[in-house]
Design a protein around this nucleic acid. Structure first.
Ligand SMILES: [Mn+2]
Ligand SMILES: [Mn+2]
Ligand SMILES: [Zn+2]
Ligand SMILES: [Zn+2]
Lengths: 145, 145
DNA sequence: TTGAAATTGATAAGCCCTCTCAAAATTCTA
DNA sequence: TAGAATTTTGAGAGGGCTTATCAATTTCAA
C-alpha cells in the first residue's frame, strides 16, 4: 500500500504492473507523479517539463509510459489536432470540450444527459461504448464581438 | 448555373472559388464528381480509385482538393485512427458516428435530443456553435463475440 | 490573345509516434 | 545476497500520413 499524495493511483499502477509481469521503475514513478498533477497533457509537453529536472529521460519512455497508464486505466488518450492528449482520469471525471475557433479557448464541460443518450444510441445499434469524443466548435463571447 | 447530377455542389464549389480568386480546373471537377458518389472516403482511397482512369493525378492534389472542399462546406474532415476521413456533407444531412474499434465498421446516426443539449451547453458557456463532432467508439455486436 | 496568378505533380520534408537494440535496472531464485 | 532471468531504458532509426517546395502547366480576366 503506497503512501503519499497519489497513493491510490500509485497502487492502481502497481497492481496493473504485477498482473502483467511488468516492473516498477524510477521512470514510471516519476512520470506518474508528474502526470497526476495535470488535467491533460501531451507526451511532448511532459517531455520538456521533466527535462528540467531529468534531462536524460527519453521521449520514447514518456510515450510508452503514458500508453501504459492508459492500459492501467489511469489515463485516457484523446486525439486533438495532430497530437494525442493524455487525460488524467482521476483528476476530474470524464469531460468534453467547447473550443473557440476564434481564439482557441477551451472550456471543459460534462453533461450526464448527453452521456446517457449516447449510451442509448449505442445500445440501439448493438454497440458497447469504450470511449467517445464530443467537441463543440464555435465562437466564445469575446470573439463574437 | 451548372447542370448534371451534382449541379448544386458544383455551383457551391464555383461560388467558393470565385469568392477566393481560385480557379476551376479539370482536376477539381473530376475529384468533386468522384467524391460526391461517396459517403466518406480517405485521400489515399480516392487516389487509388481515380488512378484507374487518371493515372497522373497526384496524391497531393487529392489532399489539397479535399481540404478545399472542406473550406467550401462540401466536405468535412474527420480523424479516424491514423487517417483523415472526408465526409460528404450533402449526401446525407448532418450526422455523427459510431465506430467499431474491432473491425472499423462505421454506423451513422442522428439524435436531435443530443444536438439540442449541445446547444444548451454552448449557450450556458457563452458559445455559439459553428460545428461539432461526436464520435462513439466501441465494439459492434460481431466483434464482442 | 496575352500575361499575371493560380494549380499541378513529383518528391522532399515534417510531424508524431513506434520500433530497434545494446546497456542498464529490476525482480526472481537459490 | 549473489547470480540469473526478464524487463526497461534511451538514443536514434524508421514509418505512416499529410503538407511544403518548385518548375512546368493551366486558367482566366483584361
Ligand atoms: Mn462525454
Ligand atoms: Mn451531431
Ligand atoms: Zn474566442
Ligand atoms: Zn466490429
Amino acid at each position: 500500500m503506497a503512501s503519499g499524495k497519489y497513493a491510490k493511483e500509485m497502487d492502481a499502477l502497481k497492481e496493473h504492473l504485477a498482473k502483467h509481469h511488468l516492473k516498477f521503475t524510477r521512470q514510471r514513478e516519476l512520470i506518474l507523479n508528474a502526470f497526476l498533477r495535470q488535467e491533460h497533457i501531451t507526451a511532448e509537453a511532459m517531455y520538456h517539463q521533466l527535462a528540467k529536472t531529468d534531462p536524460h529521460l527519453g521521449l520514447a519512455t514518456i510515450y510508452r509510459t503514458l500508453n501504459l497508464f492508459c492500459d492501467a486505466g489511469i489515463a485516457q488518450a484523446r486525439h486533438f489536432g495532430s497530437q494525442t492528449q493524455y487525460d488524467n482520469v482521476s483528476h476530474k471525471g470524464h469531460h468534453d470540450h467547447l473550443i473557440c475557433t476564434g481564439c482557441g479557448k477551451i472550456v471543459e464541460f460534462e453533461n450526464c444527459e448527453i452521456e446517457k443518450l449516447q449510451e442509448e444510441v449505442a445500445a440501439r445499434n448493438g454497440f458497447s461504448i469504450q470511449t467517445h469524443r464530443l467537441e463543440l466548435y464555435g465562437l466564445c463571447t469575446r470573439c463574437r464581438n
